[in-house]
Structure formats: structure tokens, C-alpha cells
Write a protein that binds this DNA or RNA. Structure first.
Lengths: 207, 207
DNA sequence: GTATCAACCGACACCTTGTCGGTAATCATT
DNA sequence: AATGATTACCGACAAGGTGTCGGTTGATAC
């Protein structure tokens, strides 16, 4: 009794289970044997669909980042939303993304997941930086910001928020609040925004 | 003909060779077999001195970061050097550090070295951030800066410079220059320094 | 000279990834 | 409906990795 599925079905099944297992045990500790055991397929089947364990990881990261970036893009391209609100929403989108809500991300900073973490971060940042830069330029045109290097400003803000808000489990609420306030303040300065203009829209979430 | 050495001697020997091999092949690809083969010791000897391969990695990172941080500390604590110059030197120290000069760091961004990279970055940043924050406060007192959150400002600048100047191999010289100029500019803004005050001391290196 | 201890050895157990020749289900084509 | 080609699937196996463990040898102490 051998069960046959379409390639796409099977691939998704493998990705789903692999994602589960990476979340439970970490990328290094979860073996391909764990994956095939949980699905109930043979070794050869796994390698029929994916060339290597790392290819599976890449596919998972692809799935995850694609939707995150799509979300950010939707916000940025919204014609009706004011720029400042878009900035706030975009920042939020990324920090929810990496703010330890997803099961995989929950233990992503564990040493066994260094590879997952690094790849994810690279892809997320390279996808989101241009979008946020676009937003900065929009703010420049409207006289809300005065950013001379929108691209690099975006990069700096994105990288920092990604790295700094990565492991906030071991912070007290007070520390978190301070960190959030400081982040908003520095973002205002980098963008050349009027003091307090971002606090209004971001304060409720960060502070 | 068995050669006996003191534990410290042997440990250092292992670390030296391991560092070489991690640099050549990456952490994942270099096996403990490679290490013992190159030294000419037995498997048991390696595990007599270190409990695991990862423990060797940690020891190497320790050695490397210790000296980097010591260098930064020496600069920060120099009583005779002007603050702005210290800021420049400190920033330089870190970027030389991670600017692909060392053989190990040369290929650190390769996927096989994600773990090495992550651990190194964490340790470096956590060590350097407080030092740089101290420098910022000194600048505040002298009226050179106007930084409301010295600790977080330091964190932002350190994290960004570490991540952003990590993989500069695939950038054109022109792009590098632009990135450097933007970085200086944003650093001035974050610190609340007078426009151009950092360009004077940092320009020669970055721009 | 003998006892003790730390450095050292190497076989071995166990696990991992990726390969490969063969099998069975499905889809075209006539 | 039969035949052929394609594609999913299987599981044994090779190659190689990490960490363990009982035993051995050199150095140190007494």
C-alpha cells in the first residue's frame, strides 16, 4: 500500500513537517530521518523532491519571507494611507514577523539555528529595505522627512530593528519600553523627522 | 613514541589548527578528524582537552574577541586623545576587525559558518557596545554630541556597522564610498553631532 | 622504586546525509 | 483496452561524522 501524491502536494507536506521539526528541535538537531519518519515516507522519496536538507531549509525560508514581504509591500503601496502611518505599520509588520510569534522563530536565536536565522535575516532585509526606502522618499517629498540617503537610512533602521528586537525574551518590560522609545527617537533623527512626529504613530506599540 | 605536552600547550595547538581549518573549509566542513590528522594526535586526545567540537569553536571565538575588545578598550580609556578621534579609532578598530582581514573572517559569511558568525557577532557587540556608549557620554559632556540614549545609540551604530560592512566584497568601490558617507552622516545624526564634525575625522577612512 | 595522576591512544557505537537500482502507480497514445 | 513512458516511491547501502571508553604510557611525588 504505497501512497502516491502529486509532486506539489508531497513537497508541501515535506516543508510543513520540516518546519515543525526545525521549530521543535532546531535545524541542526532535526534530521532527515525525523522528517521521513513523521511523514511515513522513505528516504528516497525525500531526496526525490529535494536535493538536500539545506534545499528544504531554503524552501521554507522562501515561503516565510515571501508572505512577510508581500505584506510590507501592500502597506507601502497603499495610496490612501498617510505616510507616517505607513511607516508605523511597515515597522510593525517586520517586528511582528521577527518578534517571536511564529513557532519557528521562537527558538530561532538558538545556536542550532544559526543558519536558518542568517538566511532568513538576509532575505528579509534585502526584500524590505527597498520598500522602506521608497516610503522614506515619499516622506521627503511631503516635507515630513529630510533624509539625504534614503536607501542607507532604510538599511540602518531595518538592520537594527531586526537584530536588536530579536532576543527580547530576556529583557524586563521596563527595558523593552526604554529600547522602544530610543528606537523611535533614533529613527526620527535618521530620517530627519520632526521630533515627536513618529512617537505619535508608533508610541502606542513600542512605548 | 608518544609526545606529551602540557595541557595548555596542547589546547593552544588544537585551537591554532582548528582556527586554520575553519578558515580554510568553514566550521561545518572542517571535521574533528581533519584537526587531529593535521596535528598528529588521536581522537581521544582531542576529546580529553575539549568536550565537543562546538567547545573548540567557542574557545576560538573567545580568543579572537578578547583581543579585539581589549583594543577598543585601550582606545576608549586613552586620556590624552580627543573624543572625536577616539570615536573614529574605535569605529575603525571594529571594522578592521570584521572587515575581512583575518583569514577566518574572510569567509565567515559563508553559509557553513553561520554559527561562527553569529556567536562572534554577539560577543563582539555585547563587549563593544558599553565601551562606545561611554565614549558617547564623554562627547555629551563636552558638548560635542547631544545623544539622549547613549546606550541604545551605541547599540544601533555598532550593530549596523557590523552587519552592513560585513559582505562588502560584492560592492563596487563607488558603492562602498557611498555607503561609508551615508554611515558617517547617520552616525552624526544619531549622536546629535554637528554636521560634518565626524566627516573630518572619519572621512579619510570611509569616504 | 613505587604509586599516582594526567596526557594520550585507537577501536567502536551510533547517527547522518545522500545515492542508486529497482518497483509501482499514473498518464498518453493508439 | 493494451502498451509504453513518465514519475513518484522504496529501502539497502556507502561514506563519513561525533563522541565514548577502557587501556597505556610518560611525568611527578614521595
Amino acid at each position: 500500500m504505497r501512497i502516491v501524491k502529486t509532486a506539489e502536494e508531497r513537497k508541501n507536506e515535506i516543508l510543513d513537517v520540516a518546519e515543525e521539526l526545525f521549530a521543535e528541535k532546531g535545524y541542526d538537531n532535526a534530521s532527515t530521518n525525523d522528517i521521513i519518519a513523521r511523514i511515513g515516507i522513505a528516504r528516497g522519496t525525500l531526496y526525490h523532491h529535494f536535493g538536500s536538507k539545506e534545499e528544504i531549509l531554503d524552501a521554507i525560508i522562501d515561503r516565510m519571507t515571501r508572505q512577510a514581504i508581500a505584506g510590507a509591500k501592500a502597506i507601502v503601496n497603499d495610496k490612501d494611507m498617510p505616510v507616517l502611518e505607513k511607516v508605523a505599520k511597515a515597522l510593525l509588520a517586520i517586528n511582528i514577523q521577527n518578534g517571536a510569534k511564529d513557532a519557528v522563530l521562537e527558538q530561532m536565536h538558538k545556536p542550532q539555528n544559526a543558519l536558518l536565522h542568517q538566511k532568513m535575516q538576509e532575505k528579509l532585509i534585502s526584500g524590505v529595505v527597498p520598500l522602506f526606502a521608497q516610503l522614506i522618499e515619499e516622506g521627503n517629498k511631503q516635507g515630513l522627512f529630510d533624509a539625504r540617503y534614503p536607501q542607507e537610512a532604510s538599511e540602518m533602521i531595518m538592520i537594527y530593528s531586526n537584530v536588536a528586537f530579536d532576543e527580547l525574551e530576556n529583557l524586563t518590560p521596563k527595558q523593552m519600553k526604554a529600547k522602544g522609545k530610543a528606537f523611535i527617537h533614533h529613527t526620527e533623527r535618521i530620517l530627519g523627522a520632526k521630533e515627536g512626529s513618529l512617537v505619535k504613530v508608533l508610541g502606542p506599540f513600542f512605548g
